[in-house]
Amino acid sequence: MKKVFCVGELLIDFVAENQGNDLSKAINFTKKAGGAPANVACAIAKLGGKGVFVGSVGQDPFGTFLLDTLKTEGVDISMAQTCSTFTTLAFVSLAEDGERDFVFSRGADRELVYDSALRKDFSGNMLHLGAATALLGGPLENAYGKYLFDALTREMFISFDPNFRGDLWKGNEQQFIKKCMPFIEKSHLCKFSKEEALLLSNTNNIQDACDVLHEVGTKIITITLGKEGTLVSYPTKREIVPSITVKAIDTTGAGDAFIGCLLYQISHLDKYEQVFNDVSLLVSMVEKANKAGAITTTKYGAIPALPSKSQLEN
C-alpha cells in the first residue's frame, strides 16, 4: 500500500447548522476540523490507508485541536508544521439541502515552508494537491509548486483538486484559472465539481470542458455531479457513474471523501498505470468513491461523517 501525501490547508470550520445559508443572520456556530487536503488524508486513514498531511497550523488551541483530530483519525502528522500565525478559520452556513456558503479568515495555512526532506519519502508513493488556499500566495504556494516538481521527478501518482472557493477569488477568477493550469497539465488525475470544470475550461457544458482539460494535459478527469453521480473521462472515453440515494444534510467534505476513497483504492494497485488502461477498473473504484461521498452528506461536519471501511462494504 502506498502513502498518499496530502498538501494544503488544515483549518477550523465554524458551522452554522440549521440557520439557513445567510451568514449575516447566523448566531450559533459549531467548531469542526476542516480543510480539503486534511479531509482527504482523514478519508484515506479511516479506510485503513496511509494518509499523510503536509500543512501548517498556528501554535494556539485551535491548531492543537486540529492536529489532535488528525492524529486520532490515524493520519500521519509528522510532516505537519506549526507557526506563530493564528490558525486559519472558515465560517460556513448550511442551507436546508446541505449546500454551503463560506467566509474565510486566512492565517497559518499560508505559512507552510517547503521541506526538501520529503523527497526521500516520495518515491513509489502518491501526492494529492488540494488548492483551496494554496494558490493565494505566501510560502504555501511556493511549497506547493516545489512538491509538484519533486513528485514529477520521483514518478509519483499525482492528484489535483482545485477546491475553488468564490469568496477567496472574487474578481480574480482569471488568476485562479491561470495558476491551476500547470497542475492540471502535470497531474494524472484531476477531480472537479461541475462549476470548477466549466470555469477552468471556459466552456458551457461538461463534455466540452473535458475536451479542453484533457488537452491541457491531465489523463483522467472525474467531475462530481452530486446526486447524479460522477463523470469519468479519459481522452477517448467517458461514462457517468451513478451514486446512491441519500438524504443530504451537509455536503461539506463530500468531494474530499470521494477523492480520498478513490486515492485509497489506487494506493493498493501494484502499478498506478493500471487505471490509465482499464476503464472498468476505474469505474468500479468510482462507484465505491461515490458511495463514500454520499454517506458523508448524511451527517454534519466533514471528518466525523467520513465513512469507515465497514460502512462502505455494507
Rank of each mutant, 00 (worst) to 15 (best):
A80G: 10
A90N: 10
N125F: 06
A143I: 06
A209L: 08
E173M: 04
G63P: 10
K191W: 03
P182R: 11
I259H: 07
T252I: 14
F183W: 05
G55K: 09
F91G: 02
L269V: 06
V54P: 02
A257S: 15
D115W: 03
T298I: 01
Y234G: 01
L213D: 12
D211I: 12
G137F: 10
G255H: 09
S280C: 03
L199P: 08
A209F: 04
D13W: 11
G137L: 09
F160A: 11
L89Q: 13
D22Q: 13
G166Q: 14
N290Q: 04
L136S: 12
G137V: 08
Q274N: 14
S93M: 02
E287G: 02
C83M: 04
G217T: 04
W169E: 06
G124Y: 08
N21H: 12
N277R: 11
S123N: 12
M126F: 03
F192G: 05
L148F: 11
G260K: 02
L23Q: 07
E17H: 12
E287C: 01
E196M: 04
G226E: 05
L127H: 02
L67Y: 00
A26P: 06
Q81W: 06
Q311S: 13
L140S: 09
A16M: 01
P37M: 09
F160W: 08
P304Q: 06
L112S: 08
N204W: 00
A143L: 07
K191Q: 12
E17Y: 14
G48V: 01
T87Y: 03
Y300L: 11
D208P: 05
L225F: 09
Y234F: 15
I44V: 09
F91M: 04
C261E: 12
S84G: 07
S56L: 07
R154G: 00
M126L: 13
W169V: 00
I206N: 02
Y234P: 05
K3Q: 15
I244R: 02
S308A: 02
G124E: 06
N205R: 06
T30Y: 10
E273Q: 15
S84T: 14
K3S: 15
Q81A: 07
G49D: 08
S201D: 09
P182H: 09
V283F: 11
N290I: 03
G301Y: 08
P304Y: 02
S159L: 00
V4W: 07
L189T: 07
K227R: 15
G166H: 12
L118Y: 14
L66I: 03
G255E: 11
D109E: 12
I221E: 07
K170G: 00
D270F: 07
Y264I: 05
A131L: 08
A143F: 10
A197I: 00
K71G: 02
G130L: 04
T298C: 12
R165V: 00
G229R: 04
F65L: 13
A305W: 01
S193N: 10
N125T: 00
W169I: 04
A151Y: 09
L199Y: 10
S78D: 13
F122E: 05
C6P: 07
H268D: 11
S284P: 03
G98F: 02
T296D: 10
I266P: 09
E99D: 14
V54G: 05
G226T: 03
L136W: 09
R110L: 14
S243C: 14
K291M: 12
L262D: 00
L10D: 02
L198T: 10
T82D: 07
D60I: 05
K146E: 15
